[in-house]
């Protein structure tokens, strides 16, 4: 990562501001307002009037997910949660539709934990949820798996398991 300087600033009565300038000289500013909405401003280099978008927290998370590259398909969703009290621990939870290539194989057989470090915490099958599936759990076509881990581990899961 280049020396992008991110400024954060608390504005009394308004909320928190994050601002940074991109390598190309454009400016992006994000405001978490006390009203609960998130405003994002972008200012193109050389322009004087910024353009703004106001988002709800859910919309902002979606945007964040798109920007981190976590969402691959519209029906596969990813959420990143940060725990500021735990040394800024960040975990990502991602849903995947199980492809044909791994149907009939178990979690143990796929060596998910060993290969990727990520964990399958739930599987949705025929509108029923199986939470904490055991290692012997065998995937079927149409399953949707919920996987938890750091974002690198999730990416690894995507590369190693989903295209197996």
């Amino acid at each position: 990562m280049s020396a992008m300087s991110l400024r954060s600033l608390t504005l009394p009565g308004v909320g928190t501001k994050y601002e940074f300038e991109t390598d190309k000289g454009d400016t992006v500013a994000i405001f978490f307002t006390k009203t609960g909405t998130i405003q994002m401003y972008t200012l193109q280099k050389g322009c004087t009037t910024p353009s703004a978008a106001e988002m709800t927290p859910v919309e902002a998370r979606r945007l964040g997910n798109i920007l981190t590259g976590a969402i691959i398909e519209a029906d596969q969703e990813s959420v990143e949660i940060a725990f500021s009290a735990l040394a800024d621990l960040r975990v990502t939870i991602h849903s995947f539709l199980i492809p044909k290539t791994i149907t009939g194989r178990s979690i143990e057989d796929l060596q998910i934990r060993a290969k990727t470090g990520a964990t399958v915490i739930a599987v949705c099958r025929h509108d029923r949820n199986i939470v904490n599936p055991p290692p012997s759990f065998v995937f079927e076509t149409g399953d949707a798996a919920l996987v938890i881990g750091e974002s690198d581990q999730i990416k690894m899961f995507e590369r190693e398991i989903m295209v197996d």
């Binding site: 009394p12 009565g13 308004v14 400016t27 405001f31 405003q39 703004a52």
Partner: peptide, 22 residues
């Protein structure tokens, strides 16, 4: 403050001046 937020003027440099003025 409501006017700055609703009219989407938070990024203007004058916004900070107004906030501290308050």
């Amino acid at each position: 403050l409501t006017s700055l937020i609703e009219n989407r003027k938070l990024m203007l440099r004058e916004a900070e001046t107004v906030i501290w003025l308050m």
